[in-house]
Amino acid sequence: MPRLTKDDTHPVRFTLNGRPVSVRVSPRTLLTDALRHEIGATGTHVGCEHGVCGACTVQVDGEPARACLMLAQQAEGCAIRTVEGLGKSDALTPLQEAFREHFALQCGFCTAGILMTLDALFSRQPDAEEDAIREALSGHLCRCTGYAPIVQAALAARNRIKGGPIDA
């Protein structure tokens, strides 16, 4: 039975945005800190560190989850996807494009988590109605943009992903 001792670091292997990674972390290291401090993937933000704010939301095997409520060691063998796995600045995904067009972010602190939730929602449910979008967004706190532009952007992205007009 493998016992990972508290005072040592131990390897953990998973894929990050499709690429295999291996890092050494202590048992108590949270996935957020492994991503940001060990790997340098700082796109995932850290807010409340107890699961309430949603800033650290990443996809674990395709499903949105709080990286601050997961031990890095629990990611062994998982496929982790973060905001760095979406588009690049010169080639945004339709979802990111819609966020820019609809001014769905100001400070941007909550945005990475929200994008990961919505990206997972549209993968599972490409025709998600506004109710489902609001339900998914209820797991995220935004303190400056307000939710109306975020919902507008999500609806526009859904329409674009479905091949319809961008305006909701």
């Binding site: 039975m1 016992r3 990972l4 001792t5 508290k6 108590r28 031990l71």
Partner: peptide, 19 residues
């Protein structure tokens, strides 16, 4: 806010977990 240190045992079966 980080957890205090702990050992982590990843059990592969019930007897490992219970032990």
């Amino acid at each position: 806010m980080k957890p205090a240190p702990f050992d982590l045992v990843t059990a592969n079966d019930m007897s490992e977990a219970l032990e």
